[in-house]
């Protein structure tokens, strides 16, 4: 059975979610639950650190799509970092780099939150 660990931490008021494992239709609800918790906590500046993410299917990508609007309407954003080429390829095939900011390392994503309004 697939597993995806979602670890939450904060840096300078920005929430970082570290994904570790396989994000598919079975594990996506766990990530969705986490997003629900973040919105309840009024945390709208979110970085998804994909360092430990080995696999993603469209069910996983759908979670980010589902919450993007609400996050941006609250002056926040969902940004990505530390993506492996395999994971980036799936994002790229679907045209997601047009919609999301994707950074090589977490620090770069943090800096854009620090310097920009969003």
């Amino acid at each position: 059975m697939s597993e995806c660990k979602v670890r939450r931490r904060e840096r300078d008021g920005i929430t970082i979610l570290e994904l570790d494992g396989l994000l598919d239709a079975h594990t996506a609800p766990k990530l969705e639950q986490m997003f629900q918790t973040l919105l309840n906590d009024k945390k709208f500046k979110i970085i998804i650190n994909c360092k430990g993410l080995q696999y993603i299917s469209s069910a996983g990508l759908g979670v980010f799509m589902a919450y993007l609007d609400e996050v941006r309407n609250n002056d926040g954003d969902i940004k990505f970092s530390n993506m492996s080429p395999k994971i980036f390829n799936v994002f790229d095939l679907l045209g997601f780099p047009m919609l999301y900011e994707i950074y090589d390392i977490e620090e770069d994503a943090l800096n854009t939150f620090r310097t920009n309004k969003r």
Binding site: S57, S58, L61, G62, V63, M65, A66, L68, D69, V90, L93, L94, G95, F96, M98, L99
Partner: peptide, 20 residues
């Protein structure tokens, strides 16, 4: 075929599977 900007506006999360 999905158009991410259109899907985003529609708040739709599906439709990527067959395209992929």
């Amino acid at each position: 075929p999905p158009n991410v900007l259109k899907y985003y506006e529609k708040k739709d999360r599906g439709g990527y599977g067959i395209y992929l």
